[in-house]
Design a protein around this nucleic acid. Structure first.
Ligand SMILES: Nc1ccn([C@H]2C[C@H](O)[C@@H](COP(=O)(O)OP(=O)(O)OP(=O)(O)O)O2)c(=O)n1
Ligand SMILES: [Mg+2]
Ligand SMILES: [Mg+2]
Length: 493
DNA sequence: ATCCTCCCCTAC
DNA sequence: TAAGGTAGGGGAGGAT
């Protein structure tokens, strides 16, 4: 608590006057727009086309178009839709089936091939062997991100996350389609219906990807079983999936990648070492850019090379858990269990695109939208939260210096408030959020992103909500107990 | 030792 | 034009 507070304080001390002024200042009165809603104003801060400036319903509309929001919120929709299938099955730890002791586990990992592209190409089968991507923009100078590229496109080096202009530079003939989130949702439903029909231990990784634990299915052949499932998926969805079969989740996942597209791969225990020997360490799940660079700096590239490094040395360089992971994964060891259900620890929403505030009113309007979003997500999950975290309120500190340096990295500021009672009430959340934001004392014109996260979650049915309805606490009471959490104290005015 | 806070990292 | 969200794991370093 102390640390984050220091940050707020420090910022205020370094730029106190202009910031205080900007908070007190409403819209400039000399442009004739005073009193108009911001989205009708023309101002110098409206330098993005679609932004909080010209859309009073920005959060909702933005989320409707955001692929990352679609991916990020998919799990909640899945858990609701498949709650029947998920309830009865335990948390994966409860008991060890006898066959896993005698012959080890059998895990299938299954993942749709170039998912977003496959879904749209159902309507354009002629393009199946042409380079195709899904992206918001088809502008060959655009900076929209490629979401998914099919395998012909990947031959040109096109990858998810690339700017469309770079993808077009790789392949002049790249065909770009827009998103169709409803269709992805539908296909994902069909995909999971099939998986749950065939297996009772399904761990959903994402809308196009899952682990199946078939250890208990003694009398089936894993490869035929996997084939059968893939066949049913392609017949039902008209999209192909690839699968990996192995003795643990790690090897099954790596097997899938090697089998793509539209294939499957079984890695028996005796083939594990050979499979890993030349595999780049960066292909291991959990090893991304940062750890990959560290390893590269040590001239470590393949899993085979990594095996030469002692566990002690890995602990020293990467910490205990990451060190253990590297040591185990490069040997093909992985003792994670397929887990059907995991309880959420936090629920939040954030926007870091198109955020442009002219004045404090815009900011508050935006915070109300975010609060509504989070409140309704808490309700959907049947969960109440005690901690409000107005986090990652990005802004360019002291604009000029930073921007001229070309440093696009925004700085963060955040503060936490703890409620005396867990809540999902939108009015209460709004109130607290507004207070926290007011305490930031930042120039709202510099804000480029806002996030609201709630944690310390409690399941609704375990909570004695009926006995203590929110209305039995006055807002004043709640606010004073939040103040005791002393994140507002130093700025109380 | 263990926990907590404030981050960074990773994956889709 | 363009939609850079979401959630969990875990490390460093300090508090207990
Ligand atoms: N950076 C990313 C990664 C993924 N996705 C979306 C689009 C993908 O179609 C979907 C599934 O992600 P995958 O990692 O499974 O990628 P694909 O299914 O597209 O390709 P692959 O055949 O490698 O699985 O998630 C995205 O929008 N942005
Ligand atoms: Mg996929
Ligand atoms: Mg996937």
């Amino acid at each position: 608590m102390g640390k984050s507070w220091d940050k707020v304080k420090k910022y205020e001390a370094s730029d106190a006057d202009s910031l205080k002024l900007s908070i007190r200042t409403t819209a400039p009165s000399d442009d004739g727009s005073f009193g108009k809603p911001t989205y009708l104003k023309q101002t110098a801060n409206s330098d993005v086309h679609h932004s909080t400036f010209n859309d009073p319903n920005f959060v909702e509309n933005y989320f409707k178009s955001s692929r990352l929001h679609f991916i990020g919120t998919w799990r909640n929709r899945y858990q609701k839709r498949f709650s029947n299938m998920l309830k009865g099955v335990g948390y994966g730890k409860e008991f060890v089936h006898s066959s896993s002791i005698t012959k080890g586990s059998t895990i299938i990992h299954i993942d749709m091939d170039c998912f977003f592209v496959s879904v749209i190409l159902r309507k354009y089968p002629d393009l199946l062997n042409e380079p195709v991507a899904v992206c918001h923009s088809d502008n060959s100078r655009g900076t929209a991100e490629i979401s998914s590229a099919n395998y012909p496109a990947r031959e040109y080096g096109i990858r998810a996350g690339m700017f469309v202009r770079d993808a077009k530079a790789c392949c002049h003939n790249l065909v770009v389609f827009p998103y169709d989130f409803e269709a992805y949702e539908e296909v994902a439903d069909q995909f999971y219906s099939i998986l749950h029909k065939h297996c009772n231990k399904v761990q959903a990784v994402s809308c196009d990807e899952a682990f199946l634990d078939i250890t208990e299915y003694d009398d089936i052949n894993p490869e035929s079983f996997s084939s059968l499932i893939r066949k049913e998926i392609v017949e039902t969805t008209k999209c192909t999936a690839s699968a990996g079969i192995a003795g643990n989740m790690l090897m099954a996942r790596l097997a899938t990648k090697s089998a793509k597209p539209n294939g499957q791969c079984f890695i028996p225990p005796e083939k594990v070492d050979g499979f890993l020997e030349e595999l780049p360490i960066t292909s291991l799940p959990g090893i991304g850019h940062s750890i990959g660079e560290k390893l590269k700096a040590k001239e470590l590239h393949t899993c085979g090379q990594l095996r030469m490094v002692s566990k002690v040395a890995l602990h020293k360089d990467f910490g205990e858990r990451v060190g253990d992971m590297l040591w185990s994964y490069c040997r093909g060891f992985d003792d994670r269990k397929v887990e059907v259900l995991k309880e959420a620890k936090s629920i939040g929403a954030e926007v870091n695109w198109g955020v442009r505030f002219q004045d404090i009113m815009d900011c508050e309007h935006f915070l109300i939208q975010l609060s509504k979003e989070v409140s309704s997500r808490l309700k959907e999950c049947g969960v109440l939260a005690r901690t409000v975290n107005l986090k990652k309120s990005y802004f360019y500190a002291n604009s000029d210096k930073r921007r001229r340096k070309g440093a696009k990295e925004p700085e963060n500021i955040w503060a936490v408030g703890t409620l005396p009672v867990p809540t999902d009430d939108v009015a209460l959340i709004q109130r607290i959020v507004k207070q926290i934001f007011a305490s930031f004392h930042i120039n709202v014109r510099e804000v480029r992103g806002v996030g609201l996260q709630m944690s310390r979650l409690e399941r609704m049915e375990l909570n004695r909500r009926a006995a203590f309805p929110l209305s039995s606490f006055s807002l004043k009471e709640l606010e004073s107990s939040i103040l005791q959490d002393h994140f507002l104290e130093p700025f109380s005015h």
